[in-house]
Amino acid sequence: MNKLVSVRHISKKYNTLQGEIEAIKDISFDINEGEFIAIVGTSGCGKSTLLSILAKLIKPSDGIVKYNIDNPVIGYMLQEDALFEHYNILDNVLLGLKIKKSLNKENREYVIDLLKKYKLENFMFKKPSELSGGMKQRVSLIRTLAIQPDILFLDEPFSALDFSTRLNVSDDVYKIIKDSGKTTIMVTHDIGEAISMADKVIVLSKCPSVVKNSYYIELDKRDCPTKNRKDKRFNYYYDLIWKDLDNNE
């Protein structure tokens, strides 16, 4: 496997008038091409901060994030409500291409094909509020894929959904990601979600977070997250990670 990103000794301090907050501290790991990595941690432990640094949205206070390709295109997916209500679904999905001024006939077709493939073609001219939570998630992911990113970052992509929708949507999203073959880093506080989707789980400690542990997840089959939850090794990993997060100092 080719190494795509190396993350070395990054830390981040936020300076505010109330004082200095050390969000993450000395984090190092590698990201290989095609890998699906989940980062888990309790809420407020610095997961979003870490992801923003990896995606080059903010600079670390220390350490480096090195990509092994020039000018990597980065896809970032946030919570559901990041769809723009003032645009229809198609315009939402084309947003990234418009911003990068690279919208042409070819990639417009590509995007429309994606919408068709994931059963959204009838909603192209609808407003986001007319879609279900799960559909909105698929739209957000397609919007991220539209710019043909080299790497995908997902920040708690399912946090706005209720539990049962969450399971279905994670299946859909997983399928879309696997079809695209993209390297993916997903942040979550849900242990089950991490184990059922990722090849590798990185566990963060409480603030300031360091890498507490990391696990390669080996399950019998890897086809769909809800089925993976029934794998006999699922609980084994769950307990390990639960303990890591529990005695968290």
């Binding site: 923003s52 970032y76 911003i99 990068k100």
Partner: peptide, 19 residues
């Protein structure tokens, strides 16, 4: 969050205002 999304696409200040 939407501003963050725009930033993730590398949008300029003017694009953020416009879109």
């Amino acid at each position: 969050i939407k501003i963050k999304l725009m930033n993730s696409f590398g949008a300029s200040k003017y694009q953020i205002v416009r879109y």
